[in-house]
Amino acid sequence: MSQVFAQVLDAVDLETFLICDSEEEGKRLILKMLRDFGFTDVDTVFIQFEGPGVRVRARGYVHKPGDRYGWLKIKGEE
């Protein structure tokens, strides 16, 4: 993952509209997209299929509570 990810407080949400034929297809596509971006802990927070595709909000967790957070470093010492 990119070094910038270390600065993500907890998660990255990706909102978009995917052209597809079903909610299942939309979900598969968006999760693949997040994995391709380098996220490992991924899920859809919200997905709605209508007409041409899905309106979707997907999430890749970078830091979950209890982890060792990349942003928790003393400025200048990283």
């Binding site: 998660a11 949400d13 899920d43 927070v45 979950k64 509570p65």
Partner: peptide
Amino acid sequence: SDEAYSGGPIAAPS
């Protein structure tokens, strides 16, 4: 805005 999502912790931007 993600309180109803049950798959993981709340994210700060929400």
